Structures are given as structure tokens and as C-alpha cells.
Computed example of a mutant assay.
Amino acid sequence: MTSLRTVGTAGSAPHLMVMLPGVAMQPEAIFEAGFARAIEQRGLPLDLLCVDIGGVGLDAMDRWDALQNEIIDPARSRAAQVWLGGISLGGLLAMAHVAARPGVVAGLCLLAPYAGSRPSTNVIERAGGPDRWRPSAEDLQDPELRVWQWLQRPPADLLVFIGHGREDRFAGRIQQVAERFPPASRHTVGGGHDWSAWLPLWERFLDAGHIA
């Protein structure tokens, strides 16, 4: 039995979404917001499992082996297509996990992903942006900057859905992350940094045809 606190199921469906909540957000909140209900309404062959990220510090986010060993690997061993999703801070955690483990998931579903703290992103801005930044060894001691190193050239074969609300108070910084992915991956809806945007984005992801 998994030692991670999870809500939902990783059953026998051919697709599994592992969703990481935002900071101080309990995994139950994702179900209360209607994410599972939206799957059921569409009759999609998708299991939803939400993982408690409490206690996972940013300095350990790309070394979170329990997520891989206890959830993702068992699902892959039964040939499920695994997606890793995240809301706000959970989106940054999802990117960090995949950056450290290429090829472990079929895709990312990033809802208003946190772009990193100001000290980290200022390093990139001072360099003239992600394409001009050349990370130093010191830079790469910062787990957030390791994510940005990965964002310089995300894998071309990784399916990505990324979106945010147009009124999100972090919209500008989220857009900087979104621009690292192909235009077809990027989505915006009305709403802020809350369920008013996150649920419609989730519904758009479900309707996008990724889950056949």
C-alpha cells in the first residue's frame, strides 16, 4: 500500500491522471471542485488520483522518489498512459519531477503553474530571458532554476496542456512558462487564480482529445 496520502483511485482505466494540488490545498479540494465529476460526465477511461504534497519542500521536489515508485511506476507497469498534473505550486512540482526523470509520463496538465520565486526568476530576467540565460553550477543548486533549465528545451514528444485565467494575478509570469511550449499547448479562460479558471481549464483538457 502506498505511503503517500492520496485521494481517488489508480484502478484499471487505460489512462491515469496524477494531480498535485497547490500550496496549502488538500487533495480532497480537487474532487470537491468537480474534477472527477467532469470525467464521469464525459464517460472517459481516466482514473484521477490526487496526491498530498504537504511537507514536500522545494529543495526536494525533483527528488520525490515516492511519487515515482509508489504511483507512477506501478501504473506504467500495467501499461496505463500516465499524465502528471499540477495546480499552481503543484504545476512547478510536476515539471520538476519530469525534468529530473525524462520519459516517465506521457504528458503534463499544468493549471496556472507557479513560475518560481522572485530571486530565482530574477536570475533569468537579468540574463535577458530563458533563451539567453546560461545556468552556472551555482544556479543549478536552486531547484526552481533546474526547472527553468529544463524549460529552455522541453522534450518535443511530451504532450503538454498549460492554461491559466486571464484575470490571474500571476498571469504574466505563468505566460512566460507557457511560452516555452508550442502555441497549441497554451490555453486561457476567464477567471483568476482559483477554481473559476481551473475547473473550466480542466474541462477543456478533457475535451481536447488526449484521453481517447
Rank of each mutant, 00 (worst) to 15 (best):
F35G: 00
I174N: 02
E203H: 09
P130E: 12
L93K: 09
L93D: 05
V160N: 03
A36D: 05
L20W: 03
D73K: 15
Q68I: 10
R5T: 11
V160L: 03
L108Q: 06
E144Q: 09
P45T: 00
I162D: 01
G165V: 05
L58V: 11
Q81N: 10
S136G: 15
R126C: 08
M19W: 01
R186I: 05
G54V: 13
G192A: 13
E40H: 14
G172M: 00
G55A: 07
N69Y: 13
N69M: 13
P45G: 02
R37I: 08
R134S: 14
G192F: 04
D73A: 15
D52T: 12
A13E: 12
D73Y: 15
R173Q: 14
D73C: 14
W133R: 13
G116H: 15
I53C: 08
A79V: 10
M61A: 04
R42P: 05
E203S: 05
F181R: 02
D194C: 15
G163T: 04
T9M: 09
Q149E: 11
L199D: 01
L44C: 11
G22L: 09
I174K: 00
G8F: 01
H210D: 14
V56D: 08
A38H: 12
D52P: 12
A178V: 01
V56T: 09
N122A: 12
D207T: 11
R204D: 04
G57T: 11
G34F: 03
R76A: 12
R126P: 02
P135R: 10
A80D: 05
A212W: 06
A79W: 08
R5V: 15
G11N: 09
G43T: 04
A66R: 11
D131H: 15
P200S: 01
G163S: 03
G116D: 10
V147F: 10
P27C: 09
R134P: 02
M25D: 13
L49F: 05
G116N: 11
H187I: 07
A80H: 01
R42M: 13
D73I: 15
T188D: 05
G128R: 07
F31E: 04
P74L: 13
A33D: 06
E40G: 14
P119I: 15
W83G: 02
H210Q: 13
A156I: 04
P119D: 12
I87E: 02
G128P: 09
A197Q: 06
A184K: 03
R134E: 09
D168V: 00
V147M: 06
Q149K: 11
W202M: 04
R37M: 13
A66W: 12
I71E: 07
W198A: 02
G8T: 03
R153H: 15
H15G: 04
M1I: 08
A156H: 07
R5Q: 15
W83I: 03
R118Y: 13
